[in-house]
Design a protein around this nucleic acid. Structure first.
Lengths: 144, 144
DNA sequence: ATTACATGTAATCGATTTGATTACAAGTTG
DNA sequence: CAACTTGTAATCAAATCGATTACATGTAAT
């Protein structure tokens, strides 16, 4: 099991739009850097747009950021691209036997812990600004 | 995306073995409470056994805990049933374009954050003892 | 208005994983 | 030997992922 790479692709897209801000970031251009299909990129761009992270317009080439990168967190992207639903990171087995003391209580006993674990993971994503990611990239390129 | 219910089933199995400690916890008995197929239960039992959490013997009905429940954490079960590999909770998109400054650095820029997020989640699981789960169940049954 | 190119989106495909199930080898007990 | 267990492989339908094709719709320039 792994969380879909839509999240890392989404982050890639946003970082590239920023770094290419003086150019035109079309789906084809982005696809070339991500190394993926332009249609898939457009699908993810649609999600980022719906979440208010980028601006794109039908027929007009290129996407722009709708917010400062310092106002976008990894959690924003994670929520935007729908990789994990609220409180559904962990699956609970369904229909445990209600006639067994364990079966009829196990879900309620486990669920709060699963929920807390998911929230702890999401909290880390919330504390990472996309600005950090771009800075890391520019550092590695000795541009900063 | 969701983490396999093998984890919640594993927890269920361990809790039930404890609560049924004076009885015989065969795969069929456990399957009846979990409401799953005995062969699947045996598969998970095999993983728990391999991880040193339970004792089972071919031909002999019933599983016993190999440790005190206060010495078993949710993380132990999580590792035992192989639901998520180390550092692989999040997928990174493969083969980003090495000729693009973003493409050739994005994986290294993202990976530490993904890793930290996964570890934070696992840390929560580590802090939950199966003893807590059993206590919750018994509380709800007014047995304690 | 026609051409060229963009985004938006639906449909399809192979690969992988999950959970369910059957089947059977091998061990144990009476 | 008979009846039961665990261990394990094989199979199956369903779900999901990422890749791809196809095309409707929108924009802009000639």
């Amino acid at each position: 099991m792994s969380i879909s790479s839509r999240l890392s692709v989404g982050i890639h897209i946003l970082a590239l739009i920023e770094i290419n801000k003086d150019g035109v970031s079309s789906s084809q251009f982005l696809a070339g850097s991500v190394n993926a299909n332009p249609a898939m990129i457009r699908k993810i761009m649609g999600m980022l747009k719906k979440a208010g992270l980028i601006e794109v317009h039908p027929g007009i080439a290129g996407a722009k950021l709708a917010k400062e990168l310092s106002d976008i967190t990894m959690l924003d992207v994670y929520k935007a691209v729908n990789v994990v639903q609220d409180n559904e990171l962990f699956s609970l087995h369904e229909n445990p036997n209600p006639e067994c003391p364990v079966g009829r209580n196990i879900q309620n006993a486990i669920e709060p812990f699963f929920s807390a674990a998911q929230l702890a993971m999401e909290k880390v994503l919330e504390n990472v600004k996309l600005e950090n990611v771009v800075r890391d990239i520019l550092n590695k390129e000795n541009i900063i």
